[in-house]
Amino acid sequence: MAAVKSNQDETGWTMVLRPRSGWFDINFSELWQYRDLTMLFVRRNFVATYKQTILGPLWFLLQPLLTTLIFTVIFGRIAKIPTDGLPQVLFYLAGIVCWNYFAACLTKTSDTFVANANLFGKVYFPRLSLPIANVVTNLLTFLIQFALFLIFMAYFYLRGSSITPNYLIFLTPLLVLQMAALGLGFGILISSLTTKYRDLMHLVTFGVQLWMYATPVVYPLSQIPVKWQWVYAFNPMTSIIEIFRSAFLGAGTINPWHIGSSVAVTLTILAIGIILFSRIEKTFMDTV
């Protein structure tokens, strides 16, 4: 897509197509005009996911439950990694629910170009609406898993476990937004690079898995020696998960520097992702 001016200019043209120019010409108002399409993609994704599984929506609950069980056995019982004094099940479930959302946003958007080459080659619509739809679809899955987490939390709370939910809970929407932005940013960044380097695709699943172990999901940040904790400032997911645990369970390491760098890294990744995406989308069809 060439540089497009949607507003009527003095000569009365509604659209002017030119060779691609500049680094940043994503048309956000157009993306908004196509919001119906984005929501229909969300619906399509959801219906397709439901209809193609045997267990249907139940799968969204089983996956975090089984992972929590495995983590509890391996990291809790066998490796005996401390969990900031929190019940192990809640500790792991909190981490998994957050990580799942981020990881799903990343992987589901990372093949945007390659998976939709056929569609993109036929008709124009703002390409960003597809990855955004994926992020929204994953949000529904997240809400289901989040509800599961709340149920477990209520159960442990009533049984008198030492969990102390607090006012930080109100930050949850912001945390979700940041995870979405980070997952989307990384996803479209990778999807742009995979148009040129197909071998990156193999790295995604593996990389996301490794990244999880570099994030305090199966261990708390407090277990990391203080002199090495600065390394975690570069991982934006660190502060998100630690704040989430502090908010709902009352234990976690909150470091203002970590929060600052986490937000900064997220915004940078998102900006780079969008810039690269908007460049690639214009010539993508010429390279496949």
Partner: peptide, 9 residues
């Protein structure tokens, strides 16, 4: 393709 904005000139 150019007119339908699938690719840029």
């Amino acid at each position: 393709k150019i007119l339908s904005r699938v690719t840029a000139p």
